[in-house]
Write a protein that binds this DNA or RNA. Sequence first.
DNA 1: GAATGTATGTTAGAGCTCTAATATGTGCAA
DNA 2: TTGCACATATTAGAGCTCTAACATACATTC
Lengths: 155, 155
Amino acid sequence: MCKGGTYDVAMTSMAPEERIGSHIKRAEQALLAAKNAACKPAAVTVPQYAALLWLAEKPGISAAALARLCGVTPPTMNTVLKNLQGRGLIERTPHEWHRNVLETRLTDEGRTVMERADAGAVRVERALAAAFTEEERTQLIELLGRCAEVLDAQR
Amino acid sequence: MCKGGTYDVAMTSMAPEERIGSHIKRAEQALLAAKNAACKPAAVTVPQYAALLWLAEKPGISAAALARLCGVTPPTMNTVLKNLQGRGLIERTPHEWHRNVLETRLTDEGRTVMERADAGAVRVERALAAAFTEEERTQLIELLGRCAEVLDAQR
DNA sequence: GAATGTATGTTAGAGCTCTAATATGTGCAA
DNA sequence: TTGCACATATTAGAGCTCTAACATACATTC
């Protein structure tokens, strides 16, 4: 049972396979790699695709609100939006009332690119979903939700 | 059932809540945030901690092998090791036979820092594990494993 | 009206991550 | 021996990510 490593895992630490976090990380890494490959034909990164997808559903949204939807900080979203704007996939215009807010919208090209990337991403999601029964899928989502809940509370 | 967004999700795409990937990502984000906070007293990042932990168990390992264990590319591990070496937490010496290989080892300070970070990380992992029954934990790990398998095959 | 609070936006800096390309060294095979 | 294959190491460049700090603008309260 005990490993033969120099650092005595059994006494003070925990083996990697026992760490639920290891398995979450591995799944996330595989997910990112698969989505990255799926987005490649559209020449966008996964974070860029995520932003474009939300922008399609919520035109004129603020960068801060978009950051919350995508689960990143405002400076991070700022970086992503800069790259998207530099490629002409989005445009940002000052809000009529709240002068400090910039409304962000897809350009026509941005919409085209998003739809192309989305096709790939959905293909990945469908393949993933197909690996589970309805019941398993429900349970997986429930268990993952509990993970997020507990971990957020830890902080 | 259908959302009122501009981009018609129902026809060509998929709602975020239906995407298993969304839930994996959320759990991983919460995990990273919790581990980050846990590693902060030791003043190391999560990737740095991961490298230190493996180094404790496998002294003299090559950077490439360490990269595989940590699930990152060699250039990424190179970046992490540079930072660790700059802080004097590891040392790298040429391999006796294979001149191209650098053997990497913890310094005394590196071991101390690792143990401090590990205490925090294990605390997070134990809290996470405590949120599930034995059966749930087993199933979660099995389901996550299937995710990784399917996603890797997609690529 | 002035102070406070809250939300948005941005910059700076450190660090992680990838792909692509290059160099070096080892071992095997024609 | 020469060439090929493979592993390791590194550099370059683009992009994502965070925390910290600061600036701006609106809204509420005193």
